[in-house]
Amino acid sequence: MKPIETKQEYNDYVDKKSPNSPIFKNCFNAFFVGGLICSIGQIIMDFCKFKGMDETISSTVVSIVLIAVSAILTGLNIFNKIGKFAGAGSLIPITGFANSIVSPAIEYKSEGYIMGVGGKMFTIAGPVLVFGISSSVIIGIIATLFI
């Protein structure tokens, strides 16, 4: 190997030396777990409709149930094991959003229930709400031009 002189050379060399994540295995796991979580959501949805709820309410029930289950699994220290296995499979569904709120809430409990739990709860999920809600406001304003 010839001596490395520049930062660029070193970065290229490190990229070559660093092992990649096992992407095929990860994608397979993500597909399987992600699909499974969505299917569970679908079954809950079907059940709500079967009980006579409308589309919007059913959809809300699905979110609430999946969020509640994720919160419990996070509290029981199980969600992080699922997450390690599934990667995006548990991150991308609404379960990942719930986990990203519950995990800092538990972690920062040691800083108190107001500024610790209450304040740090949104350290990861906060941006999701900021960007999601802001986009919806912009879209709503644009929509006024067309209605």
């Binding site: 990649n20 994540s21 992407i23 990860n26 994608c27 796991n29 993500a30 597909f31 399987f32 777990v33 992600g34 699909g35 499974l36 979580i37 969505c38 299917s39 959501g41 679908q42 079954i43 599934a86 990667g87 995006a88 499979g89 991150l91 991308i92 569904p93």
Partner: peptide, 20 residues
């Protein structure tokens, strides 16, 4: 349910590619 599984799974695969 099968369609739900496959579409949900594919959306997650895209996320996994972004992670990796």
């Amino acid at each position: 349910l099968l369609k739900c599984f496959i579409v949900g799974g594919i959306i997650c695969i895209i996320g996994q590619i972004l992670i990796d």
